[in-house]
Write a protein that binds this DNA or RNA. Structure first.
Lengths: 256, 256
DNA sequence: CGTTTGGTTGATGTATGTCAATATTAGTGG
DNA sequence: CCACTAATATTGACATACATCAACCAAACG
């Protein structure tokens, strides 16, 4: 992941961009040692357990999931390659939510004590960790707005745009790509966007029939980016609107 | 605010509790200088503006609000006395959301450069700032679950319990208090829980008629704590369930 | 006092959920 | 490569939680 890009993208305070990028490199080196391969569906962190590790996702998709006693589930956050997760292990012993692999994945693992030590010693590493939390909070803010005030169509459109933008940023997807893999079932998508499986399916059909975007198998294809952006537009934060990754405005000239 | 309590409450990593408490004291001293009094309804941070300050809320209520172009609004987070807000100013120039005072409030203000300098110099202060972000993320996770999967009743019950627990923690409210002020209109509550004003009103009537809790004027009174906890129970994270502040379980013996 | 803002209630509409049946795809073992 | 099975997707009929609209009421407020 090119942290310089990411930082510019995020309107970072001056000088922090380089530090962030440096922190990312150092962290990668620090964590490269203990690689772990997990298969789709496996549990990386059990809910409500004491957990001592912080992770960096190298390949694949992983999600933070809350399951209620009556069976309802919410996929709170989806992590994509390059993301750190369970950074909170450095500060808190217990994790209230489970972390599941959505696909086969490769993660790097580090004991929180080792990371904390590096965090205390090297401000670049500290910044990289803090940055993860800050970015995550931004995404959570957006998601709260989407869940609280967005329609089903708005949420799903936003989701597709968000996935693509993040995959591009992580270097997993070439810039401008219109098609990518989402290793989630419609049920899992439903549990992320806070809708029923059936309704997700209907909205997807709608998007397909409108020629906006399709989900076939696990492949999302954006057919009309401008239209997709227009659908999700109300939910985009100012930041995403300005970003070239998303285009300037719903009536922006580019994109087909 | 007694950070030691808060830390114990939050199952903190060993030794960090004292550091956190120390950080809170130091930060209070650092920020005590520039106090600002704001009146209800005023805007502390405008959405999408460049902003150079970090705040500590001493008295009153303040909220992070996102307003969509078509008028929909979402109160993303509510800050209560003792909370820091806009901590992100240290890392990011722009704030996509506005921050509004829900009541007359007293805030302490500090230029992000000064705070960043203290943050870099003193690990206790750094910890206190990071802690704010970590706690905030926990609340956001819970809120995402509530908005995504909770019913109207569950969301409102949870909200009341959450407000009370936090007011107690901040020292604004004596432990065990059953009545407290919520300086929000029903419309603002609706914009926080992601419902319409009318529906919030109906659910409140329902809670009142069930003898569970009332909102009269701006005063919330918990009449049957056990029942209220039972209503919100599915949405409580493991952490809130174990905490004595919330009681052990929905069929726990205490409470009336 | 009148005016405004916020609260309450009823009638009605709609987005989304639930249930259930069928089609499709993906996995599995032979 | 096929047959069998389980998982997932799709669709229709129906139910409901919640939204919208509109009227009225009550408190706050200048």
């Amino acid at each position: 992941m090119d942290m310089t890009d990411s930082a510019a993208f995020a309107l970072h305070r001056p000088n922090l961009a380089q530090n962030l990028s440096a922190g990312d490199d150092k962290l990668r080196k620090l964590m490269a040692a203990s690689v772990r391969v997990v298969s789709s569906g496996s549990t990386l962190i059990e809910s409500d357990s004491i957990h001592d590790y912080v992770y960096r996702l190298r390949t694949g998709w992983v999600a933070r999931v809350r399951t209620l006693e009556d069976g309802r589930a919410q996929f709170i956050l989806i992590f994509l390659p390059g993301d750190l997760f369970a950074v909170k292990s450095m500060f808190v012993t217990h994790h209230p939510d489970a972390v599941h692999a959505l696909s086969d994945a490769v993660v790097e693992q580090i004991d929180y004590r080792r990371l904390k030590e590096a965090y205390d010693r090297d401000p670049d590493i500290a910044l990289r960790c803090t940055w993860q939390i800050v970015e995550e909070e931004r995404r959570l803010h957006n998601w709260v707005v989407g869940l609280g005030r967005g329609s089903a169509e708005e949420r799903l459109s936003l989701l597709f745009l968000d996935f693509r933008a993040r995959l591009v940023l992580s270097g997993t997807l070439p810039d401008g790509a219109l098609s990518f893999e989402v290793p989630m079932t419609q049920e899992q998508i439903a549990d992320h966007v806070g809708l029923s499986t059936v309704h997700v399916n209907r909205v997807l059909r709608n998007l397909r029939e409108l020629g906006v975007a399709t989900l076939r198998g696990k492949t999302v294809t954006i057919q009309n980016e401008k239209a997709l952006r227009r659908l999700s537009y109300p939910l985009l934060d100012s930041f995403e609107r300005c970003s070239s990754k998303f285009g300037r405005s719903p009536e922006g000239a580019e994109g087909s």
